[in-house]
Every structure is written in structure tokens, then in C-alpha cells.
């Protein structure tokens, strides 16, 4: 029987002086991962943007458990999103979306 790949959910806080939309954010994250780890490395992350809240500047990403550090390192090295100065912080990581929402401060869900 094929074993299921373990996933990790990361709650992200995006800090910028200007508004950032989901498309710009996704593009920057993928570009950063590809630049640091190459397309082969990026393909192993299994990265998906599960939620994106442009008003709160928050996002939830899902990735393969083994690639969590790759994603963290890549997010840390983001200094601008579409030429807008920005910083991305991982505020919480969890194995399930339910527990991530439960432990996330000021979440509506």
C-alpha cells in the first residue's frame, strides 16, 4: 500500500508598507524557492497556498513535512514582493489545518 506523504501547515504573516495580492505573493514564494533550491528542490516541497487573507496580510501554506525547513528558509529570504519591501514570518506551524486554526491568534475560524 502506498504511504501517504505527511503534510505540514504554516501560518504566514506578511509585512509590507503596501498591499500585496495573492498572485504576487505566490509568484515571489515560488521564485525564491526555485532560486535557492532549484526547480528539482521546489518540486519536492508540494507547496500549496491554502488560504490567503489580503486584509489581514496572512496566509496558510501547506507543504510536505520533509520540506518544511526549505520553505522556512525560502520565506525568510524574501525581502521584497513585486518590488515592494516586505518581510514574511512563519507565525505557527502545525500538522493539521484544524489545530493550526485553533492555535492561531485572532482567527475567525
Amino acid at each position: 500500500m502506498r504511504r501517504m506523504t505527511r503534510q505540514r501547515y504554516l501560518a504566514i504573516k506578511i509585512e509590507s508598507t503596501q498591499p500585496i495580492d495573492e498572485k504576487e505573493f505566490k509568484q515571489t514564494v515560488w521564485n525564491t524557492i526555485s532560486r535557492l533550491f532549484g526547480e528539482y528542490g521546489a518540486s519536492k516541497t508540494g507547496l500549496v497556498v491554502v488560504e490567503y487573507d489580503a486584509n489581514k496580510n496572512r496566509a496558510i501554506l501547506r507543504c510536505a513535512n520533509v520540506a518544511t525547513e526549505i520553505i522556512r528558509a525560502s520565506l525568510t529570504s524574501i525581502t521584497e514582493i513585486d518590488t515592494k519591501p516586505a518581510a514574511v514570518h512563519v507565525i505557527r506551524a502545525s500538522g493539521t489545518l484544524k489545530s493550526l486554526h485553533k492555535n492561531l491568534p485572532h482567527t475567525n475560524k
Partner: peptide
């Protein structure tokens, strides 16, 4: 500056780029 600061855990992940164990 404020935008050049990261959480300690995020900075530790950068060690991965030069093969430093977490």
C-alpha cells in the same frame, strides 16, 4: 530596519543553506 528582522526560528532555518543542522 524593521523589514530585515525575522523570528529566531526563521533565521535558524537559513542554516540549512550552508548545511548546518537545526
Amino acid at each position: 530596519g524593521e523589514f530585515s528582522m525575522r523570528t529566531p526560528r526563521d533565521f535558524a532555518a537559513v542554516g540549512l543553506l550552508f548545511d548546518m543542522p537545526l
